[in-house]
Design a protein around this nucleic acid. Structure first.
Length: 273
DNA sequence: ATGGTGGTTCGACCA
């Protein structure tokens, strides 16, 4: 069984004590980090490697930054989302884990304000991601595209859908771009097992969002068919959101079996056992 | 009614 998690840490250096604590408690096999906010030289590499993780990073100063942590060695590292050579933002890293599982850590553009340049950039990024996802699907291998998508796929993923309708995270164009990727053949690892409302991965620092559970579900793990067939469990590990000096995001995780499940554990077949 | 919080970095931008 392999536990794979995605977590927007909002600065890996500011979050290092929480990250190390969480790695020890949750014991994930693969971790996809976003918003590391540091160049590769500033990444706390030794501290993480000393816990037994291999590491691949893509960083830039102040903004963005993504990384992959893995108990097994990493290969085939790709440090940019294809499709725009002029895009210098550190938002995509991809790697082969232990020779059997391919993963990507994705930090999608926020897109606000929607009347500026960042919203079209977000939509172009979604389209580029769809094309890359299609290429990877053709390999017909276990694949996890995880990260902070900055998209609430449906109104059930928003604590106050009416107030958020015009936000770049909820706009129909953003949801359409996300769905276009899912419709290639991906399974949303969290929603496949947890249809309930009130399940979030992000709570704003402001306005007491965390104690009121005024959250959004914007961090996702998308599984290829070969990974979805191995899906055994998934969840949001909301505990670190309640720790001292937290990130505004919580880790989202899934557990993949080493073998294909005899009976799929998805909503569509639940009750059919 | 305008501030809300936090990270990075030292003024302002991003989320």
């Amino acid at each position: 069984m392999a536990k794979i998690a995605t977590w927007n840490v909002n600065s890996v250096r500011a979050r290092l004590p929480n990250l190390l604590r969480w790695l020890g408690e949750a014991a994930p096999d693969v971790v996809l980090l976003q918003e590391t906010k540091t160049v590769c030289d500033g990444f706390p590499r030794l501290e993480i490697e000393s816990l037994g993780y291999h590491l691949a990073t893509l960083g830039q100063k102040t903004y963005n930054g993504v990384a992959i942590l893995s108990r097994e060695p990493l290969a085939d590292v790709v440090r940019a989302l294809p499709g725009d050579p002029d895009d210098g933002q550190a938002r995509y890293i991809e790697a082969l884990v232990g020779g059997t599982l391919r993963v990507a850590s994705i930090y999608l553009p926020n897109g606000n304000p929607t009347d500026g340049e960042s919203f079209p950039y977000k939509l172009r990024f979604l389209d580029r991601l769809r094309r890359r996802a299609g290429e990877l699907l053709r390999r017909e291998e276990p694949l996890v595209l995880g990260g902070d998508y900055n998209v609430c796929p449906t109104d059930d993923d928003v604590f106050a859908p009416g107030e958020w309708a015009g936000d770049a995270l909820c706009r129909p164009e953003s949801r359409r771009g996300f769905r276009a990727i899912v419709h290639l053949g991906f399974t949303d690892a969290l929603r496949a097992l947890h249809p309930e409302k009130g399940l979030y991965s992000f709570w704003d620092y402001q306005g007491g969002a965390w104690p009121r559970n005024h959250g959004l579900r914007i961090d996702h793990l998308l599984l290829s068919p070969q990974a979805a067939d191995r899906l055994r469990d998934s969840g949001v590990d909301s505990a670190p959101r309640g720790w001292e000096r937290p990130s505004d995001h919580a880790p989202v995780w899934c557990a993949l079996a080493d073998q294909v499940s005899p009976v799929p554990r998805t909503c569509a077949t639940e009750g059919g056992r």
